[in-house]
Design a binder for these strands. Structure first.
Length: 126
RNA sequence: AGAGUAGGCGAGGUAGUUGCAGAUUUACUAUUACUAAGUAAAUCUGAGGAAAGUCCGGGCUCCCGAAAGACCAAACUUGCUGGAUAACUUCCAGUGCAGGCGACUGUGAGGAUAGUGCCACAGAAAAAUACCGCCUUUUUCAGUGAACAGUGAACAGUGAGCAGUAAACAGUGAAGACUGAUAACUAUUAACUGGUAACUGAUAAAUGAUUAAGGUAAGGGUGCAAAGGUGAUGGUAAGAGCUCACCAGCAGUAUCGAGAGGUACUGGCUCGGUAAACCCCGGUUGGGAGCAAGGUCGGAGGGACAAAGGUUGGUCUUUUUCCUGUCCCGUUAUUGGUGAACCGCAAGAGGUGUCUGGUAACAGGCAUCCUAGAUAGAUAACUACCCUCAAGAAAGGUGUAUAUUAUUAUUGCUUUUAUUGAGAACAGAACCCGGCUUACGUUCCGACUCUCUCU
RNA sequence: CGGGAUGUAGCGCAGCUUGGUAGCGCACUUCGUUCGGGACGAAGGGGUCGUGGGUUCAAUUCCCACCAUUCCGA
């Protein structure tokens, strides 16, 4: 399952901005970086239509095998699709995978992502 | 049946749902309009044998202005022969060597007589030396003392005589036998002959130690390795391929082979190992960067003259339509954009089938097919059926052994039926090909070798 | 995509160039010293030299392949 196109973070410039200016939350297996990027644009245009865009970063240190890395990415993406309806718009999010995550299963990712997003107050209703 | 050797096929299939990427078509959005863009729908397509490691070789692109050549340098795991290939550290066929009973496997296979270096410890010595030993000559010393002469035990030979035994023969007896007698045999001995040990006399050589000069490489506990090896009642003062036989190596000749090499004969006897130590020889090679190359892309283009300069690690030669230089002609662009765009980018040393040539690698002909193209980076999840495997169960078939005993139980193999479980291992294209290397679960397919059993 | 470096005792490092004995510091064990501990002194143990092949009489060292870690450039 892939993320819808509008919810993907694809440009390396966005990644750089998120890394340098965004907030940061950690958990044993994942790191969350997020930035409410559209503040300026919203104040100017007053149309907060830009959707939240999410990117996943996983380095070769986690595993040298591309198959393993791709599987983790797919699992995280599937978890994000479940969480997408409750995530508030306008964010740029980068999820970094840490090396112990090789042994995790889908349910772990889902639970951990939920906790991280709550901590960062990105999920609606908190 | 068991144990092996080398190799091949394949990497579950079909259908459906959801999701993602690309291509084509249609519709819509937006726009003055086009291009480009976005959204939706339909159809089609969507990882591998290694896509991996990035260890080689190429294609492709740009830079060093281009092209050709000579010499030198540099680099190269380039190094038996022949062939294949666009090329190769690849492949095929062979040769030698090594391993295996064999099928078969491995092979970094030029030169150690061009030179330099190294060979620890041990050992006399690690590449041509001489410590010991052996031999010759020589200086000095020591004690023993052969031949020869004499004496001469012992021993050997001849052996009168004496003694013992005794055949033929003679006599007696019926006969066994007895008596007599000699040849012969046995023992012993005088004597004679030879002459040993020993003793006496006398002096050289040899012997031992030692001094000096040589000869020798047979032997010496070492060592991975010791000067070709083994044998010789050949040879020598002692020895030595000094000589002979066999074996190994080298050289030459003949012959077979396309060649590496094979075989046979002859010859003189023959200087360790290490070149994955430096090196020598032969061979090959413009250098660099790499699709993040590079292009669209920009100030374009044309002509004439000059012959000074500019080239690949260096020097040099030749050619030039390149650049720089001088002059002339002449074209124009300007909404923005040098990246978050597009092209490169998927028809290729392509795949499949078949025929021909070749032992083979491979080459050629014909037919047919088009089959991923992303860029924070797509292939995943689920369902159904089939197929395969595994497990235990039921029923049937069949073989063997054991127990019991008269056809029963246990057990092996196999078939069918339904049930349950699993379908995995290594692993994901990033410009493209050819190789190499490494990783890899199960099953299947034939080929070959050895051992055992039966016919 | 290209180019390097490293791997040796529990830890940090020598040794490899020029092949033959694996060593240093801390840590560990035992003994001494001290009322006891630390420090100090003495003695001792501990090594598939990353893995697998090859060259060599002999490999931590030379050559090749692989594995892991790590750095640099675009």
């Amino acid at each position: 399952m892939g993320l819808p196109k509008e919810n993907r973070l694809r440009d390396w410039r966005d990644f750089r901005v998120v890394y340098s200016q965004g907030i940061r939350q950690q958990s044993p297996h994942l790191i969350l970086r997020a930035l409410l990027a559209s503040k300026l644009e919203r104040s100017l245009s007053k149309e907060p239509k830009e959707p939240t865009r999410i990117g996943i970063s996983i380095s070769q240190k986690v595993s040298k095998k591309a198959v393993v890395r791709n599987r983790i990415k797919r699992q995280i993406r599937a978890a994000l699709i479940e969480l997408l309806p409750v995530i508030s718009p306008g964010w740029k999010i980068v999820i970094v995978v840490r090396s112990p995550a090789v042994k995790c299963k889908y349910e772990h990712f889902l639970q951990e992502l939920k906790q991280l997003l709550e901590k960062a107050r990105i999920i609606d209703g908190y």
